Simulated assay, not measured.
Amino acid sequence: MLTLAMMTVGSTVIASKFIAGSMPPFFATALRFALALPVLIPLLLLQRERWPKLTRSDGFLLLLQAGAGSVGYTTLLISGLSYLPAADAGVIIGTLPAVSALFSVMVLGERPSARLLIAVGLATIGVMAVAWKGSGPLSLIGMACILGAVVCESAFILLNKRMRAPLRPLLQTTAMTVLGLLVSLPVAFLELPFAMPGSEAIAAVIWYALVPTVGGFLLWYGGAARVSGSEAATFTAVAPLTAVLLAALVLGEQIEMSQAVGVAAVMLAILVLTIPARLKPVPQV
């Protein structure tokens, strides 16, 4: 289940590549959320989820999470893929665990460990391998957008940790979808005259809404409930590998040596962050 969940995350890079150039990013983001809501709301009703009482600060944190993790990540990913091959973007997306851990040190004041420093170093090597082959300012713009998407998603993870009463997974996903739709709609209306979606772009948005947003959520939390947190984190390495493989199989991109080195480096970074924790003895009850 965790493997399939991370494969859907990797597929968002390919879907965003189909969307880029055909739909403005905020318009595509709003459409994604609008398509996901009719699936999520019935799931809430079936599960009989109740909305908890939230403090004003938690409500504000939810809004910030939606702006960063839901809208910022998607719009920057789509924007970046207007300038970069999908395989390059997949490598950069794989730096998310290392960047998130680095954010925890910088913002939450957690003590940096040797594992974190090694992982950040490996993730940097992965990004530099992609940058090494890039040529021209457009590639740099694309890389900046994808790195911005990673930073937005890291901020989402960090803000969620700051909530006094974290929401249950299905409520969290639905809240991010509703708030993400509300945040993206004003700009989406302005972009409407520039939207020229083809059939491939529309199919990609539908895929993005139903498979990674809804299906990926169900698979991830279903699998994560059966393993430890460190074991679940290890499976994030599947996402960049899937993105690079799908870039070759679906988009016909030629995978170069620099991209192979990059994806290997970010996968090693993820393993460095997680494997030592897995090797700790499990206390016997």
Score class of each variant (00 low, 15 high):
Ala119Thr: 10
Leu122Phe: 15
Ala123Thr: 10
Thr124Pro: 05
Val127Trp: 04
Met128Val: 08
Ala129His: 03
Val130Ile: 13
Ala131Tyr: 03
Ala131Val: 10
Ala131Gln: 09
Lys133Thr: 11
Ile141Ser: 11
Gly142Met: 15
Met143Ser: 07
Ala144Gln: 10
Ala144Phe: 14
Cys145Gln: 08
Cys145Ala: 14
Leu147Asp: 04
Val151Phe: 05
Ser154Arg: 08
Ala155His: 03
Ile157Pro: 00
Leu158Glu: 09
Leu158Cys: 09
Leu159Gln: 02
Lys161Pro: 03
Lys161Thr: 09
Lys161Gln: 15
Lys161Val: 02
Lys161Asp: 06
Met163Pro: 02
Arg164Pro: 00
Arg164Asn: 11
Ala165Phe: 08
Pro169Phe: 00
Pro169Arg: 01
Pro169Asn: 05
Leu170Met: 07
Leu170Gln: 07
Thr173Gln: 00
Thr174Gly: 01
Ala175Gly: 03
Ala175Thr: 14
Met176Cys: 01
Met176Ser: 04
Val178Asp: 05
Val178Trp: 08
Leu179Arg: 08
Leu179Cys: 07
Gly180Thr: 05
Leu182His: 08
Val183Gln: 02
Val183Thr: 04
Ser184Phe: 04
Pro186Glu: 11
Val187Pro: 05
Val187Thr: 15
Glu191Phe: 07
Phe194Asp: 15
Phe194His: 15
Met196Arg: 14
Pro197Gln: 15
Pro197Tyr: 11
Pro197Val: 06
Pro197Gly: 11
Gly198Phe: 15
Gly198Trp: 10
Ser199Asp: 09
Ser199Glu: 10
Glu200Ala: 14
Glu200Gln: 13
Ala201Val: 15
Ile202Cys: 05
Ile206Ser: 02
Trp207Arg: 01
Tyr208Ala: 01
Ala209Lys: 00
Leu210Gln: 01
Leu210Ala: 02
Thr213Glu: 00
Thr213Arg: 00
Gly216Thr: 00
Phe217Glu: 01
Phe217His: 14
Leu219Cys: 09
Leu219His: 08
Tyr221Arg: 01
Gly222His: 06
Gly222Arg: 06
Ala224Ile: 01
Ala224Val: 03
Ala225Cys: 04
Arg226Gly: 00
Ser228Gln: 10
Gly229Leu: 07
Ser230His: 15
Glu231His: 09
Ala232Gln: 09
Ala232Tyr: 10
Ala233His: 06
Ala233Arg: 05
Thr234Lys: 05
Phe235Pro: 00
Ala237Gly: 14
Ala237Cys: 11
Ala239Ser: 14
Pro240Cys: 13
Thr242Glu: 09
Thr242Met: 10
Val244Ala: 06
Leu245Tyr: 03
Leu246His: 07
Leu246Ala: 06
Leu246Val: 03
Ala247Cys: 08
Val250Gly: 03
Leu251Trp: 12
Leu251Asn: 13
Gly252Arg: 13
Gln254Asp: 11
Gln254Thr: 14
Gln254Trp: 12
Gln254Ser: 15
Ile255Phe: 08
Glu256His: 13
Ser258Met: 15
Gln259Pro: 01
Ala260Gln: 14
Gly262Tyr: 07
